[in-house]
Design a protein around this nucleic acid. Structure first.
Lengths: 108, 108
DNA sequence: ACGATATTTCTAATATTATCGAAATATAGT
DNA sequence: ACTATATTTCGATAATATTAGAAATATCGT
């Protein structure tokens, strides 16, 4: 994952509404949720929600699959893993994620 | 770390300029960099840079320490670790970070 | 074909963010 | 006190994002 896509994903998740949507989808697991379920869960207008979901889809964090009238949304763990990988590699160099204090190494 | 602070950090890192600043500071390691060094490295006007750095400081991703005229900036690994922890726990439930494909468990 | 449901696209208003020059502040050396 | 350096704050403009109602589209059941 390159810097641009990483930034796009972060920007997407940097909005509280979108972060809630994404967390909801993660919790829903493999099954995912249909847009209407998300809407009822979060209580936001359909058009607003559609906008936010589209943005999550655009940056690759959510996938959609139409099932007749309903639109199934699922969190894309692969993308999320890439984002975490980017952050760990590029933004946390030399720091273990464990809480044991770090042995900062200038890895470049 | 709560949802609000996590979102703030992500929003901060979701801007390409700020992400570059942060990566630069991470690479600089424990020593950090003074604002002027960051400015020369990235080639952006001082006032614009100041704005972005202030934002990184505000959300806790960067710390500053004045040394006479110069302002030393350092990446705060502890905050970064918390952000990664949040993302791993709340946004990646049941998915291993290793590339071996996941055993999605609905952990709630 | 029609009416109901699910969701998006359009449109417009409002709000927030980004950018950067100019002026202000802080500190250092002379 | 004066000048130079380092950085921030101010102020104004431009760009982008958020919000949400209304209209459009798609699909279903009858």
């Amino acid at each position: 994952m390159d810097t641009v896509q990483a930034a796009q994903c972060m920007e997407a998740l940097g909005n509280e509404t979108r972060l809630s949507i994404f967390r909801l989808l993660v919790k829903a697991g493999d099954e995912g949720l249909i847009v209407g379920q998300v809407q009822r869960a979060l209580g936001i207008p359909a058009s607003t929600l559609s906008h936010h979901v589209a943005r999550l889809v655009r940056c690759g964090l959510v996938s959609q699959e139409r099932r007749s009238r309903e639109l199934h949304c699922r969190a894309r763990y692969d993308t999320m893993r890439d984002v975490l990988g980017f952050l760990t590699d590029e933004c946390c160099t030399g720091v273990s994620l464990e809480t044991e204090s770090a042995d900062l190494a200038l890895a470049n």
